[in-house]
Amino acid sequence: MAKLHVSTTINGEPVEFLCEPSDTMLDALRGPLGLTGSKEGCASGDCGACSITLDDRLVCSCLMLAVEAEGHALQTIEGMAHGDKLHPLQQKFLEMAALQCGICTSGMLVASDALLRKNSKPSEEEVRFWLAGNLCRCTGYDKIVRAVMETADEMREAAQ
């Protein structure tokens, strides 16, 4: 069967790619598109390592078909920093040691960014439930939750 052609926008850039009908968006990102920042921990929507946003909605790219990207706008971890300027969440994760092995980090950052876009002042409980779909086996989440809350505080202050 011939491959399907998809036109989409990824991290603000127009992009075209070919895929099998059964390919997931994660397959496409990590394969033909060469965007390996999104990770595959489970391929079943349980770990969040593959988190991206689709028109600003947080999704597991392993649960999305690649062809569904047609005409939409995707954001991946590779689009988070601006040039050499890290996003405040990225910076805070580094400062607060909110990553150990780093395999969950892309997904955590994308998910945390999606949270802060919706809710600039999340409580600890809101952060914990929002990130409940992003598994981290290394950190026990403590430093991740703190980093997200501190970033939210700083971003609010900066916005004032």
Binding site: R30, T36, M80, A81, L86, E95, L99, L109
Partner: peptide, 20 residues
């Protein structure tokens, strides 16, 4: 609490893990 040498790559998705 310095910033780790491999940090920037890990928060930007550049770090190459086994399947990358």
């Amino acid at each position: 609490r310095t910033i780790r040498p491999d940090g920037a790559d890990k928060v930007t998705g550049r770090a190459a893990f086994a399947a990358d």
